[in-house]
């Protein structure tokens, strides 16, 4: 008679005071299994990501987009998928682009191989550096660079060269005399460099943002106030872009196109990891309530 509530209390007490390393172990096992054997999941595209995709997808051949890519390996999980999907879209649409980076001098070396690899894929129109896109490279000074681009885009990047001549003399910059000639500025970042663009862009052109999920809270208000044409959030945003690519270039018509990369790959581990988290919260709370009921506190 006395023993029964005693054992029940013990279960909750054990759960209440469980060693956190068991939680860690479960997380590691769950994620490992799904990283090695991912499950393909369906998607419902977020309207904010679709907004940016639709805008870029509606551009015409030969239009010009300015890209500021600020991510490094430390946010690779989210930013790389976004960046790859953006490159695929622009190359398939034959939109010219110029890339600069603010965060880190190594970024050009991280992203150039990715661009070149995507340029070789079917559907990428064999994009050539210096012909269809240029790398303006790294700029150490955030303030001066963004203000400079807004004031005089050619002047701001004229010192950067491709194959011995200034990138503004390449076909990529043909007809681009002011930032307002660019259809859009897309910022891919894991840090707050986007704030400078809000402060300095002076509505010269549209602004799109691809950011990590942790930054989305502070940046969604700018999407609501239409300072951003669209916002692509974290790995899910990358998956949205990949899904939209696959809708525009479906696999049965374009069998050799690559649409899905890390965005979809990371979705199933993420789902189960978050489910684990939710389960942890629920169990933790039930344990607390049960303990309270039986009057015992650990």
């Amino acid at each position: 008679m006395i023993q029964e509530p005693q054992t029940e209390k013990n279960i909750w007490q054990t759960l209440y005071a469980i060693d956190r390393r068991w939680l860690y172990l479960i997380l590691i096992i769950v994620v490992s299994i799904l990283v090695v054997n991912p499950i393909t999941v369906p998607n419902v595209v977020d309207p904010a990501a679709k907004s940016l995709y639709d805008y870029l997808s509606g551009l015409e051949e030969g239009d010009f987009v300015y890209i500021e890519s600020d991510w490094t390996n430390s946010t690779r999980g989210e930013s790389r998928g976004q960046f790859e999907a953006l490159m695929r879209l622009l190359m398939r649409k034959k939109v010219r682009f110029c890339i600069s980076t603010l965060g880190d001098p190594q970024i050009p070396d991280i992203i150039r191989p990715i661009i070149n690899q995507i340029a070789q894929e079917p559907g990428s129109n064999n994009y050539q550096e210096g012909q269809d896109w240029v790398m303006a490279g790294y700029f150490p000074n955030l303030e001066a660079h963004v203000s400079g681009l807004v004031n005089n885009i050619r002047n701001a990047v004229k010192d950067k060269q491709f194959a011995g001549k200034s990138i503004v003399d390449t076909p990529v910059f043909e007809g681009i005399n002011d930032l307002s000639d660019a259809k859009c500025v897309v910022v891919i970042t894991g840090s707050s460099t986007i704030n400078l663009w809000y402060e300095r862009l002076r509505a010269k052109t549209k602004l799109g943002l691809m950011c990590t999920a942790v930054m989305s809270g502070e940046n969604i208000p700018y999407y609501v106030s239409r300072q951003l044409v669209g916002i692509v959030i974290g790995a899910k945003g990358a998956f949205d872009f990949e899904t939209l690519l696959a809708e525009e270039w479906p696999a049965d018509e374009y069998p050799d196109y690559t649409n899905y990369t890390s965005g979809r790959r990371y979705m199933s581990p993420l789902f189960f990891a978050l489910m684990l988290l939710i389960l942890a919260v629920v169990v933790g709370n039930i344990a607390m309530i049960q303990l309270k009921k039986s009057g015992g506190r650990s």
Binding site: L23, Y24, L27, N73, S74, Q106, V281, M288
Partner: peptide
């Protein structure tokens, strides 16, 4: 830079996932 600093940077920030999980279990109470 790439194989040490950048990798350590990513690993350090990913550790937070574990601490969030443990904090959610212990501290996130109604």
């Amino acid at each position: 830079f790439l194989d040490m600093l950048q990798i350590l940077d990513a690993a350090m920030f990913s550790l937070i996932a574990f601490f969030i999980l443990s904090a959610a279990y212990r501290a996130f109470r109604v």
